[in-house]
Amino acid sequence: MQLLYENLEQTVAVILFGIGFTILLLQRNLIRKIIGLNIMDTAIYLFLASMGYISGRKAPIVVDGVTEVSAYINPIPAGLVLTGIVVSVSFTGILLALTVRLYRRYNTLDIDVIALLAKGEDA
């Protein structure tokens, strides 16, 4: 318990990840699925960003001529988070586009109903 409290950000991140992927896998509504995906990805970014942050240090941009490593935080996790955000934005875009197409065709967002309707069509 003490351990969980000491690593609060990581604990929260893993719980959020679990919530996200449960929504992604179990919800039948496509929009909710996409929200679940975003929660899941954001949880990982929280995880990464919290690992890169060291309290009391600054972002690694050299001002006032301070160049010791100990004055700055690790910039790589932030870079990874940025890359990850780009990826998840593009995936959200693609999934929303797919949802629009499915909705126009079947007038519902429920994936099970859509699958049933599609089964009735000719292959």
Partner: peptide, 18 residues
């Protein structure tokens, strides 16, 4: 562009994103 590929790819994307 037909219903089957749309449904199949939605499933595909969900599993792959997971």
């Amino acid at each position: 562009q037909n219903g089957h590929t749309l449904v199949a790819i939605t499933r595909y994307m969900i599993m792959h994103l997971f």
